[in-house]
């Protein structure tokens, strides 16, 4: 197995994770914030698969974890978009600046 591929994969996943964190705290569009959060979840997926493939080829734990994360992230995105549409119907905007009823 080509071990040298592990480091670039980890750098990629760390880059994706912090892109997600940065996007989540700077973007003011609800959909963009959701996308950033999904990016964070997917960077964990890359980590799991890379570790499983290169460090522990005999195990399946990481692969299974990835499958479950993909499923749960889909459920989370579905509900989040439903709520965003619900909020949009009331405020006619998907900017979080306009969701300011609670202070």
């Amino acid at each position: 197995m080509n071990q040298e591929l592990l480091t670039p994969l980890l750098i990629l996943s760390a880059f994706l994770f912090f892109t997600g964190v940065y996007g989540f705290v700077t973007r003011r569009n609800m959909i963009s914030m959701l996308m950033s959060a999904e990016l964070m979840l997917n960077s964990a997926n890359i980590n799991f698969v890379a570790f499983n493939k290169f460090l522990y080829p005999g195990k399946l734990d990481g692969m299974f974890f990835t499958l479950f994360i993909i499923t749960i992230a889909a459920a989370e995105a579905a509900l989040a978009i439903a709520i965003i549409i619900h909020v949009y119907r009331q405020t006619k905007s998907i900017d979080v600046k306009d969701a300011d009823q609670l202070i």
Partner: peptide, 8 residues
């Protein structure tokens, strides 16, 4: 808005 903040 509360639901939105909770899920995000």
């Amino acid at each position: 808005e509360s639901g939105l903040k909770l899920i995000l």
